[in-house]
């Protein structure tokens, strides 16, 4: 019935044109970042660079102080990785107990997490900032990892609980009969079986942490642990219309996530579509 016809081919070409227009901003991004200081002012923004060079990237990467891009990049990697590890560890344990427990309290706790997913973080930001400041956690990577994990924990627990509920208890029963302890059952049998769930949690939460600007601006702004988006914000704030440098730093901030996305795009998209459906 639904076959590939001439009309489908026309539609396909139409969609490709639409997609290219949709991604046109990236043309400006790349073309401008390769232009020299003179050319940025003199040439048309639509024109390709006459003498493409990577000088802007070198300038941006050697910036110091508040807008040190390399330090921001390293901090972002540490904070994102740390948050994912903590979230997977704590989230899987909590999700497992909640999904497997038949006690009444586990259902109440499950609702607690569900409401927390929708609860916006803005209202808690001020007290959290004051609390973190009095504990000396503002401006530190550790404080940030703890904060991000806590903020995204409801999502992680919700995803894990959903996946655990879909997993039968046969493996655990078999392992228990073979004499495995509860800890062994969880870490050697259940958690490895949950790698799709772990992948979804890591991708969704990792992306949110990596791209987050609001929280890290408040908690890390101006400190030596500030993440890449904050460093980018300060750097660009110090530039006036030097679009070649601005776009060089924007590209640097995009490369890690884009490389990861193009490498594992199927998992990314499934994570978004499937993960949100539980």
């Amino acid at each position: 019935m639904f076959r590939y016809t001439k009309l489908s081919a026309v539609r396909e070409v139409g969609f490709w044109i639409a997609a290219l227009l949709y991604l046109a901003p990236f043309y400006f991004l790349i073309s401008m970042s390769l232009k020299g200081d003179q050319e940025v002012v003199s040439s048309s923004p639509l024109a390709l660079p006459t003498a493409p060079s990577l000088d802007n990237f070198a300038t941006v990467l050697t910036a110091t102080g508040n807008s040190n891009v390399i330090v921001g990049l390293v901090n972002s990697v540490i904070i994102t990785a740390g948050s994912i590890v903590l979230m997977v560890l704590v989230g899987s344990l909590t999700g497992y107990v909640i999904a497997r427990s038949t006690r009444r309290w586990s259902r109440g706790v499950y609702y607690l997490f569900l409401i927390a997913i929708v609860l916006p973080t803005q209202l808690g930001t001020v007290p959290l900032y004051i609390g973190a400041r009095s504990l000396g956690l503002t401006g530190t990577s550790w404080g940030m990892i703890l904060l991000y994990s806590g903020m995204l924990m409801p999502l992680a627990i919700f995803l894990y609980a959903g996946f655990f509920r879909g997993l039968g208890t046969e493996y655990e029963e078999a392992a228990a009969i073979d004499g495995a302890s509860r800890t062994q059952i969880f870490f050697r049998i259940v958690l490895p079986l949950m790698s799709p769930a772990t992948g979804t949690v890591a991708i969704l939460a990792g992306l949110i942490v990596w791209n987050d600007f609001f929280t890290s601006l408040i908690f890390l702004g101006g400190s030596k642990s500030q993440t890449l988006p904050v460093a980018m914000y300060y750097y660009i704030g110090s530039l006036v219309s030097q679009w070649n440098q601005i776009f060089a730093i924007v590209i640097i901030s995009m490369i890690p996530i884009l490389a990861f996305y193009l490498f594992a795009q199927k998992r990314f998209i499934q994570g978004f579509a499937g993960g949100l459906k539980g």
Binding site: V90, G91, L93, T94, G95, Y96, V97, I98, R100, S101, R103, S106, V109, L112, F113, A116, L119, L123, G124, T125, V126, P127, L128, G131, L146, L147, S149, G150, M151, M153, P154, I157, T169, E172, E173, A176, R182, I185, F186
Partner: peptide, 29 residues
């Protein structure tokens, strides 16, 4: 006959969510 984990495994997760979501929001309010 068969137990799945210990209940206290859920404690760190519950405490983090309580502190960072509920207590902070209430204090903010």
């Amino acid at each position: 006959l068969l137990k799945f984990g210990y209940w206290w495994w859920a404690l760190p997760g519950i405490l983090m969510v309580l502190a960072i979501h509920y207590v902070a929001t209430t204090v903010g309010g």
